[in-house]
């Protein structure tokens, strides 16, 4: 195993354990903090893929801004540990069933995809995550989806302002 592979497995284990802790933690604040660690692990994966820009943007936007807002809301709402309503067995069963089938679907999809078979991950070599290739891709090949998503954000912003004005 090379250093990169060791790092990959360590980061993956870290990400999965943190993600499990997000679900297991009773205190919502702890959940948010574990979720931040998950984002860090994912950023670590981006770095391994030589996608430094994506890694750092992931930290700035998700770990830095969005999770701060999450923390904000949870701290203000002040959810007590025990105030979470107890779910019935039937609801729990349905949840497990639907979640499990979704997982199965994902695994099956990944396994069936022809392009992914017999492929190794481009560790350390890819350039698509760097700024210049990414910028070129966004503004040439994917310019329409990119602009549409920015229009979406604009409309969300306008909506927020209108709600705020009321």
């Amino acid at each position: 195993m090379s250093t990169l592979e060791i790092l990959f497995y360590a980061l993956s284990a870290f990400a999965i354990i943190s993600a499990i802790m997000v679900l297991v933690s009773k205190n919502p604040i702890y959940s948010v903090l574990w979720l931040i660690l998950v984002f860090f692990a994912i950023s670590g994966h981006y770095v391994l893929l030589n996608a430094q820009f994506l890694a750092i943007v992931n930290i700035i936007v998700y770990a830095g801004a969005i999770m701060v807002l999450f923390l904000f809301v949870i701290m203000l709402v002040n959810v007590k540990q025990n105030s979470e309503p107890q779910k019935q067995m039937l609801v729990k069963f349905i949840g497990v069933l639907s979640g499990g089938s979704f997982l199965l679907l994902l695994v099956a999809l990944v396994k069936q995809t022809v392009q992914l078979q017999e492929q190794n991950v481009l560790l350390k070599d890819g350039t698509i995550g760097l700024i210049h290739p990414l910028g070129k891709a966004l503004f040439t090949d994917y310019v329409v989806p990119f602009e549409i998503s920015s229009v979406l954000f604009l409309s969300a912003m306008v909506g927020a302002v209108i709600i705020g004005k009321k």
């Binding site: 430094q52 820009f53 930290i59 830095g64 923390l71 701290m75």
Partner: peptide, 25 residues
């Protein structure tokens, strides 16, 4: 010398906010 130097600083600064928030809470 990483090629996203300034963004790295931004990311770290936004982490600093957690120190304050967690401590305050």
């Amino acid at each position: 010398d990483i090629n996203i130097g300034i963004l790295y600083v931004f990311a770290v600064v936004s982490m600093g906010v957690y120190g304050i928030m967690i401590g305050g809470w």
